[in-house]
Amino acid sequence: MRDLNEKDLRGKSLMRFASPQVFYPVAGRFAPWFAAVAAVLAVAGLYVGFFVAPTDFQQGEVYRVIFIHVPAAWMSMFVYLVMAFWSAVGLVLNTRLSFMMARALAPTGAMFCFVALWTGALWGKPTWGTYWVWDARLTSQLLLLFLYLGYIALTEAIEDSRRADRAGAILALVGAVNVPIIYFSVQWWNTLHQGASVSLTKAPSMATTMLAGMLLMALAAWAYTFATAFWRVRSLILERERHTDWVGAELERLGSR
């Protein structure tokens, strides 16, 4: 199959990057940098969180789990919105790369969701005595995980990649519209059924160092997301474009290394 020719590659500078062939090397160049930044920020953030930030008056050392829990929860939400954004772009502009980006982001978002739930449970046990509490935030987080799993399951179940991309895009958009509704309804449900005043959102009041720690971890998570998404998108590109000449040459190059 013929590759892009010069006519395709000229034209509006940003739209060039909508071509998988052009984006592939760009992603390859940037991903290792993002990974390095993520590693550095994570080390810094964990250091601040576990050694520099003061011990909490009420919760002791256990509270330090929020340095992982809160950034993971933020990222899980943010990544879903980015996924929905790329899905919308793909449906409107009919660019394959946008769909591939959305699919590359999903597993990372699901991972953050899972980490947020797990660290929430780890925080809950020593603090409140149970591993799980049907608190509004955790419950919404759980439902968000199901939305991610649904997206991944749907896109993996459809063999035709174009149908998979577009169906997943619709699902992501429907999910994005429903996320505020779900959050609101779970909030409502939680306050009405509230027995004990257990809430994992009652983080200790923030000293500046604590905020700094969380910010560092959030930025680390963000850089990590970029790195993994770029790496995943590269393999998606190779897979989708496997019938083209440039991929053939690339695979040979990778094989001979």
């Binding site: 199959m1 063999e159 035709d160 990649s161 174009r162 897979e239 989708r240 474009e241 496997r242 019938h243």
Partner: peptide
């Protein structure tokens, strides 16, 4: 026309 990942 694209079918699957192949160009027909």
């Amino acid at each position: 026309c694209l079918k699957g990942d192949r160009l027909l």
